[in-house]
Protein backbone atom coordinates (compact mmCIF):
# COMPACT_ATOMS: atom_id res chain seq x y z
CA UNK A 1 0.00 0.00 0.00
CA UNK A 2 1.10 3.53 -0.65
CA UNK A 3 1.49 6.06 2.13
CA UNK A 4 -1.74 7.74 1.05
CA UNK A 5 -3.67 4.51 1.52
CA UNK A 6 -2.27 3.80 4.97
CA UNK A 7 -3.08 7.21 6.41
CA UNK A 8 -5.62 9.93 5.91
CA UNK A 9 -5.81 13.58 6.76
CA UNK A 10 -8.46 14.58 9.30
CA UNK A 11 -9.34 17.85 11.02
CA UNK A 12 -7.86 17.76 14.52
CA UNK A 13 -11.37 18.54 15.84
CA UNK A 14 -12.52 15.06 14.79
CA UNK A 15 -9.97 13.25 16.94
CA UNK A 16 -9.30 15.71 19.76
CA UNK A 17 -10.97 18.25 22.03
CA UNK A 18 -9.55 21.41 23.57
CA UNK A 19 -10.18 24.30 25.96
CA UNK A 20 -8.39 27.64 26.04
CA UNK A 21 -7.59 29.79 29.04
CA UNK A 22 -5.77 33.06 29.65
CA UNK A 23 -3.51 34.67 32.21
CA UNK A 24 -2.36 38.14 31.21
CA UNK A 25 -0.87 37.95 27.72
CA UNK A 26 -0.32 34.19 28.00
CA UNK A 27 -2.76 31.81 26.37
CA UNK A 28 -2.93 28.17 27.41
CA UNK A 29 -4.73 25.56 25.34
CA UNK A 30 -5.21 22.05 26.70
CA UNK A 31 -5.68 19.50 23.94
CA UNK A 32 -6.78 15.88 24.46
CA UNK A 33 -7.23 13.04 21.99
CA UNK A 34 -10.50 11.11 22.23
CA UNK A 35 -8.78 7.82 21.38
CA UNK A 36 -5.41 7.12 23.04
CA UNK A 37 -4.26 5.51 19.77
CA UNK A 38 -4.07 9.01 18.26
CA UNK A 39 -1.79 10.38 20.98
CA UNK A 40 1.44 9.68 19.11
CA UNK A 41 0.21 11.12 15.82
CA UNK A 42 -0.80 14.35 17.54
CA UNK A 43 2.45 14.44 19.51
CA UNK A 44 4.44 14.13 16.30
CA UNK A 45 2.44 16.62 14.26
CA UNK A 46 0.95 19.27 16.56
CA UNK A 47 4.23 20.77 17.64
CA UNK A 48 5.09 24.28 18.84
CA UNK A 49 6.94 24.81 15.54
CA UNK A 50 3.84 23.95 13.56
CA UNK A 51 1.64 26.27 15.62
CA UNK A 52 4.07 29.12 15.16
CA UNK A 53 4.22 28.52 11.41
CA UNK A 54 0.44 28.25 11.07
CA UNK A 55 -0.65 31.04 13.41
CA UNK A 56 2.38 33.28 13.80
CA UNK A 57 0.18 36.34 13.30
CA UNK A 58 -1.30 35.91 16.74
CA UNK A 59 1.03 33.45 18.53
CA UNK A 60 3.94 35.86 18.66
CA UNK A 61 6.01 34.61 21.59
CA UNK A 62 7.38 31.37 22.99
CA UNK A 63 5.30 28.21 22.75
CA UNK A 64 5.86 25.48 25.32
CA UNK A 65 4.17 22.09 25.11
CA UNK A 66 3.67 19.89 28.17
CA UNK A 67 2.96 16.25 27.42
CA UNK A 68 0.49 14.46 29.69
CA UNK A 69 0.43 10.93 28.40
CA UNK A 70 -1.62 9.67 31.34
CA UNK A 71 -4.39 12.13 30.44
CA UNK A 72 -3.88 11.57 26.70
CA UNK A 73 -3.28 15.25 26.26
CA UNK A 74 -1.01 18.23 25.91
CA UNK A 75 -0.92 21.69 27.40
CA UNK A 76 0.27 24.46 25.10
CA UNK A 77 1.44 27.59 26.89
CA UNK A 78 1.94 30.50 24.54
CA UNK A 79 3.40 33.84 25.58
CA UNK A 80 2.53 37.07 23.74
CA UNK A 81 -0.41 35.23 22.28
CA UNK A 82 -3.34 37.45 23.25
CA UNK A 83 -2.62 40.76 21.52
CA UNK A 84 -1.68 42.24 24.92
CA UNK A 85 -4.12 40.28 27.08
CA UNK A 86 -7.72 40.64 28.17
CA UNK A 87 -7.31 44.21 29.37
CA UNK A 88 -5.32 45.50 26.39
CA UNK A 89 -6.39 43.48 23.35
CA UNK A 90 -8.71 45.02 20.78
CA UNK A 91 -9.80 41.56 19.66
CA UNK A 92 -13.51 40.89 20.26
CA UNK A 93 -12.38 37.70 21.96
CA UNK A 94 -9.87 39.38 24.23
CA UNK A 95 -9.49 36.24 26.37
CA UNK A 96 -8.56 34.14 23.34
CA UNK A 97 -11.32 31.69 24.31
CA UNK A 98 -11.62 30.70 20.66
CA UNK A 99 -7.91 29.80 20.40
CA UNK A 100 -8.98 26.21 21.22
CA UNK A 101 -10.68 26.03 17.84
CA UNK A 102 -7.77 27.76 16.17
CA UNK A 103 -5.71 24.70 17.11
CA UNK A 104 -8.51 22.29 16.31
CA UNK A 105 -8.65 23.69 12.75
CA UNK A 106 -5.29 22.04 11.96
CA UNK A 107 -5.22 18.93 9.82
CA UNK A 108 -3.37 15.83 11.00
CA UNK A 109 -2.45 12.57 9.32
CA UNK A 110 -3.72 9.49 11.14
CA UNK A 111 -3.38 5.82 10.29
CA UNK A 112 -6.44 4.28 8.71
Amino acid sequence: MSQAEKSRSVPLREIAHARAGDKGNISSVALFVFDPRHYEAVRAQVTPQRLRAAFGGVLRGEIARYELERLHGFNFVMTEALEGGVNSSLNLDSHGKSWSYLLLSLEVEVEV
Binding site: A18, R19, D22, Y66, L71
Partner: peptide, 15 residues
Protein backbone atom coordinates in the same frame (compact mmCIF):
# COMPACT_ATOMS: atom_id res chain seq x y z
CA UNK B 1 -13.44 14.50 28.90
CA UNK B 2 -15.13 17.31 30.82
CA UNK B 3 -12.90 16.73 33.84
CA UNK B 4 -9.69 16.68 31.78
CA UNK B 5 -10.55 19.96 30.06
CA UNK B 6 -11.15 21.65 33.39
CA UNK B 7 -8.13 20.07 35.13
CA UNK B 8 -5.73 21.91 32.81
CA UNK B 9 -7.85 25.04 32.36
CA UNK B 10 -5.67 28.16 32.77
CA UNK B 11 -2.80 26.05 34.04
CA UNK B 12 0.73 26.54 32.74
CA UNK B 13 3.14 23.79 33.84
CA UNK B 14 0.77 21.05 35.10
CA UNK B 15 3.49 19.86 37.51
Amino acid sequence: HTVKEQLLYEIHDPA
